[in-house]
Simulated assay, not measured.
Amino acid sequence: MADEIIDVWMQQPNQRFLDQRWLEPLLRWTDLDRAAPPVAATLGAMDRAGVRIGLLSAWHGPQGVLISNDEVAELVQARPDRFAGIATVDLTDPVRAVREIRRCVRDLGFVGVRVVPWLWNLPPNDRRYYPVYVACVEEDVPFCTQIGHTGPLCPSEPGRPIPYLDEVLLDFPQLVVVGGHVGYPWLAEVLSLVRKYPNFHVDTSAYAVHRLPEELVEFMRGRGRTRVLFGSNYPMLTPAQCLDRLDDLGLGAEARELFLGGNARRVFSLPL
């Protein structure tokens, strides 16, 4: 595959992350091993799909740190040619969260911030997110989140786009937002927001491309070709599993290039 591929949603999970009870459905559906994969296995999975760069996400929830920003930073520093970092923060400590975003972006070179609403059971219009949004705008990095239902054993409601994310995009017109996991079953709401807000994007993580909703694929073929990014959600799905039937989407050359890597390079300001 000649196209440059950037995977915008990956994890390098540790045992602490894989031992979470809410992962049970995903482990059952994907036959994922409870043992944390070595970095060599992650790089091998990227190579098999032709992924040049993977954006590795840190994780923090109400129970504490799951994958720390510093753990991600070590991986990025060891292989800056293959990985970039996505930071996370503790929503219960807003001052420290802002300082941590500044540290991760300015000192560690991270390219975005991710908070997963279902993990906190807090929709993105909750006041505890707002200092995070200000910091993302000030540091000029995207805010990454999850949209749609949840596979893990947690409530899905925080992933509903309207009214929650709609209010955020109204309040922060300069904030760049990337909504991961497509947004099913609220695709009409997702597409209405993408059309309404020029800074809102969608990534296809957690989906094999041949299972993407047809209305999203149609959007990608046309006016939405600059607004959808490739992601896998590795290790739950490998990039190769996600891209196996890419040709079936019927994307033109420009739409394909933008989906696989061009949009990610622009949205996350990745160096050439």
Rank of each mutant, 00 (worst) to 15 (best):
L170F: 15
V176I: 14
D140F: 10
V113T: 08
L43Q: 09
F83P: 03
I162L: 10
V116Y: 02
Y133N: 09
V113H: 03
T30V: 07
R195S: 14
R245Q: 14
V105N: 01
V228Q: 04
R211C: 12
D171E: 14
D31E: 13
W118I: 13
V141N: 02
L56W: 00
R34E: 11
V168D: 05
E257Q: 12
L26S: 12
G250M: 11
I53D: 01
L26W: 06
D247G: 10
R127P: 08
C242K: 00
G179N: 07
A45M: 06
V134N: 08
P80M: 10
W22K: 05
T30H: 05
Q174H: 15
S269T: 13
V72Y: 06
I101R: 02
M220P: 03
H210D: 15
A40W: 05
S269M: 08
L212A: 11
I67G: 03
R82N: 07
G224R: 02
P271G: 14
E71S: 10
R211V: 06
W29T: 12
V132S: 06
E214P: 13
R223T: 02
R99N: 15
R21M: 15
G148L: 02
G85K: 02
C104I: 02
V209F: 03
Y207R: 03
D19H: 12
L18K: 07
D90L: 11
L258P: 03
Y207G: 01
D247L: 10
V89H: 03
R127E: 13
N14H: 07
R128A: 08
G151E: 07
P235S: 11
W29Y: 13
S232W: 00
S192W: 10
Y164H: 15
C104P: 05
Q77L: 08
K196H: 11
W22T: 12
Y197D: 07
R128G: 04
V51N: 04
Y184C: 11
G148I: 06
R52E: 12
C242A: 13
D33F: 05
V217E: 06
G61W: 05
F17A: 05
G64L: 10
D7W: 04
G262Q: 01
V190K: 00
N14M: 02
V115P: 03
W29C: 08
P161A: 03
V137G: 08
F230D: 01
G262T: 01
N125R: 05
I86Y: 02
A253F: 06
R221H: 09
R16E: 11
R245P: 07
R223Q: 11
G112I: 04
L237V: 00
L249R: 05
L251M: 10
N121Y: 13
L249A: 07
R16I: 05
T30C: 06
L272T: 08
D126Q: 07
P163D: 15
Y133L: 06
V76T: 04
L169T: 09
S57E: 09
E214S: 15
Y184P: 01
G250H: 06
L91C: 11
V137W: 00
L212W: 03
R103K: 15
D81K: 13
L32H: 03
R106V: 12
M46G: 04
R227I: 03
N69K: 06
V65T: 14
A240C: 00
D93M: 08
R102H: 15
F219A: 02
E214T: 15
E218M: 11
G222D: 14
G151W: 01
G44Q: 12
V137Y: 06
L23D: 09
D7E: 03
H149Y: 14
G262W: 06
V137L: 04
F200P: 01
I147H: 00
F17Y: 15
